[in-house]
Design a binder for these strands. Structure first.
Lengths: 184, 184
DNA sequence: GTCTATATAGGGATAGAC
DNA sequence: GTCTATCCCTATATAGAC
C-alpha cells in the first residue's frame, strides 16, 4: 500500500507519544504503522531522528492551530480562554494522549529536543499571559504558568491512573476559575 | 573501591530520574556511577530490570518517609499540609529532580512499572484527601488530585524551562490556598 | 566486590531489485 | 514507494580469574 510522508507522520505520532523517543524502536514503528523499514527510510532518509523531528513539528503545527490560535483571536478574554480549553480537550484527546513536549523532555544535555520543546512551552505561556493580562489578571505570568503546569500534570495523572476524569474536570473549571480574579 | 548495594542504588536514582528506563543504558550507568558491569550484576543479578525496580522501591520508601508521613501525623491539618510541602520541596530537590513515577510511566501495556507507579500515586492522593476532608474541604477528592497534578506539572515545566521558580512559587502558596476554602 | 573477555540479541541504517 | 537481505554497532547479559 502506498503511503505519503504526511500519512506516515500521522501514524508516527501515536508511537512517539506512547513510548517516548528512546522507547520507540524501528521494529515497534514498523509494527504499529504497518510500514516497512524501507518505506520509513524513503520518507525520512536520516532515520529515527528525522521521524521524531518531523513528528514534533507536525504536532507543534497542530498545537498552534488548535490551542494557540483561539488565544490570539480578537474576541473577549472569556471566549479566548474558552477556545483554548476546547482546543486542549481536542488536542490531548480528552486526556488520553500524552504531550510530546513532556515525553521528549527526558534525557541529559545531549537531548536534541530541548530547545524546540522549551520554545513551544514558552510560546504557550506567553500567549496565555497576554490574554490574562488583558483580562486584568493580577499576576498573569504566574497564572499562565500555573495553567500550563496543571494541564501537564493532569495528563500525567490521567495516564498513570488510566482515568481521564481528573483532566476533564480540571479543564472544565478553567475559564471560570481564571476569570474570577479579573474584571470579566 | 567497594560499594554496597545501597550505595549503588543511591547512585542509580539520578540516572533513572534523568534518562528514564529506556533511555538508561548500562554504559551510561557505569559512567555515571563509576561502577563496572560486574559490580552492577553482582548487586543486581537480574540486571537492568532489577536495578530499576530496586531504585523505584528505594525512592518510594523515601517518599513515604518524607512526604506521606507528615500527612499522617496527629497534628492539625495546616501543620500536616505544611509538612507535606516541606517534604515535597526536599524530595524533589526544589524542583530539580524529576519524579520517577512520571518518568517510569511511559510505554504501553508491557510497561512493568504500571502497577507500582499507579499504587504510589493513589496512595498519595488518598492520604492528602483524608487531611483535606478532615479540614472541612468541600471536594477533598478533587482537590487532592489537583494538588498532585500541579506538583507533577510543576516538575515537568521546571525541567523543560530549566527554571525551578514556578515549582517553588506554587509550593509556597499551597497550604494557604488549600485552607482558604476550609474551616481552618 | 571488581576486573577482563566474550556471547547473543536487537538496535539503527543501507543497498539493490522490483 | 515497498520488499528482502544484510551490515555494523551497541545493548544486555554471562563466565571465570583475581
Amino acid at each position: 500500500m502506498q503511503t505519503s510522508r504526511d500519512e506516515a507522520i500521522r501514524k508516527l505520532i501515536k508511537v512517539f507519544r506512547t513510548y517516548g523517543y528512546e522507547g520507540t524502536t524501528l521494529s515497534l514503528i514498523s509494527k504499529m504503522t504497518g510500514l516497512g523499514r524501507a518505506s520509513l527510510y524513503h520518507h525520512f532518509p536520516k532515520g529515527k531522528q528525522e521521524m521524531a523531528q518531523a513528528t514534533l513539528m507536525h504536532v507543534h503545527q497542530q498545537f498552534c492551530e488548535i490551542v494557540l490560535k483561539p488565544l490570539q483571536q480578537e474576541t473577549n478574554p472569556r471566549d479566548r480562554l474558552q477556545g483554548m480549553c476546547e482546543g486542549l480537550n481536542q488536542f490531548y484527546d480528552r486526556g488520553r494522549a500524552a504531550c510530546l513536549i513532556a515525553v521528549f523532555s527526558l534525557g541529559g544535555e545531549e537531548n536534541m529536543f530541548r530547545e524546540p520543546v522549551k520554545k513551544a512551552l514558552q510560546e504557550w505561556i506567553a500567549s496565555l499571559e497576554n490574554v490574562l493580562r488583558e483580562a486584568g489578571c493580577d499576576l498573569p505570568r504566574e497564572r499562565s504558568r500555573e495553567v500550563v503546569m496543571q494541564i501537564q500534570g493532569g495528563l500525567m495523572v490521567a495516564r498513570v491512573l488510566d482515568d481521564t476524569t481528573p483532566f476533564e474536570q480540571m479543564l472544565a473549571r478553567f475559564p471560570e476559575r481564571l476569570l474570577e480574579e479579573t474584571n470579566f
